[in-house]
């Protein structure tokens, strides 16, 4: 079952064309890793899917709902405000620099959206939060504030915050780039566990070993194009593309 379909996505910032005709799909339960050099458009792609940016043209269908498609003139025509909000509920996003709410405790970071957006009761949302904190190995931290936690712990809280809204697809934008190697391991372990539970995920990452071992599909992007789209073996071992080989040789 297709969870996400992107067709012919194009996006420019002024004269700078960041996404040039990007098409790919994600199936239910799959982990898609997106790799590529800085400035290749990986993060922009993720931001277009999560509505933090808009595409100039192309089509995005998330869990069967069309977020955007081309109008008769080939320009992006977005769904209405309500539809866009509903589509956004299918997705969760974990940021590179966490973006936790510093004035809320760990507990409130995880419960606030459940209560104000989903309308869950205080008790129900706290129960969900406690379960997730336990899963993240942070049971004892529910009353702590983000500034009292290590980077790895903060990132785990932000994963719990995203999971609390039960998204159908969880997206990660370089989730370990702000962390040292030891803390990186903590986060990768969590993603690995989610992969075992068949959570559909899209992970933009620079961790090649991780992408190779966890992902079901790997996309290699360069300069706004998808250069490779295949299984980890196809991309990491069997690629005959010069650009791919040159990039992977650095790792």
């Amino acid at each position: 079952m297709k969870m996400l379909e992107a067709k012919n996505l194009k996006k420019s910032f002024g004269d700078n064309e960041v996404l040039k005709n990007i098409s790919f799909e994600v199936n239910k339960g799959d982990v898609l890793a997106i790799i590529g050099p800085s400035g290749s458009g990986k993060s922009t792609l993720l931001r277009c899917i999560t509505q933090l940016e808009t595409v100039d043209s192309g089509e995005i269908v998330i869990c069967g709902d069309t977020l955007v498609k081309n109008d008769a003139f080939g320009n992006a025509a977005y769904a209405g405000k309500k539809e866009k909000a509903a589509i956004s509920r299918h997705l969760g996003l974990v940021f590179q620099n966490f973006n936790l709410f510093p004035h809320f405790s760990v507990m409130r970071n995880i419960t606030e959206a459940q209560r104000k957006v989903l309308g869950r009761s205080k008790d129900a949302s706290e129960e969900v939060a406690r379960k997730l904190l336990k899963k993240m190995g942070l049971e004892s931290k529910e009353n702590a504030y983000p500034c009292e936690l290590s980077g790895g712990q903060q990132q785990r809280v932000s994963i719990a915050r995203a999971l609390a809204l039960s998204p159908e697809i969880l997206l990660f934008d370089e989730p370990t780039s702000a962390l040292d190697p030891e803390l990186t391991g903590e986060i990768l372990k969590v993603i690995r566990e989610l992969a075992k539970e068949k959570m559909t995920m899209i992970v933009v990452t620079h961790e090649m070993l991780f992408a190779e071992s966890v992902a079901d599909r790997v996309i290699f992007m360069d300069n706004g194009y998808i250069i490779e789209n295949g299984t980890p073996e196809e991309v990491f071992k069997k690629s005959s593309n010069e650009r791919t080989k040159a990039f992977l040789a650095k790792y």
């Binding site: 509505q51 933090l52 940021f95 620099n97 973006n99 510093p102 004035h103 606030e112 957006v117 809204l165």
Partner: peptide
């Protein structure tokens, strides 16, 4: 900007984002 983006992804309305997340900080 990340505070606004995190709030948007979580589905908070603009008013909720401003009064609950931005203004207190």
């Amino acid at each position: 900007k990340g505070q606004y983006e995190a709030a948007k992804i979580l589905g908070f309305t603009k008013a909720q984002t401003f009064f609950r997340i931005i203004l207190p900080q």
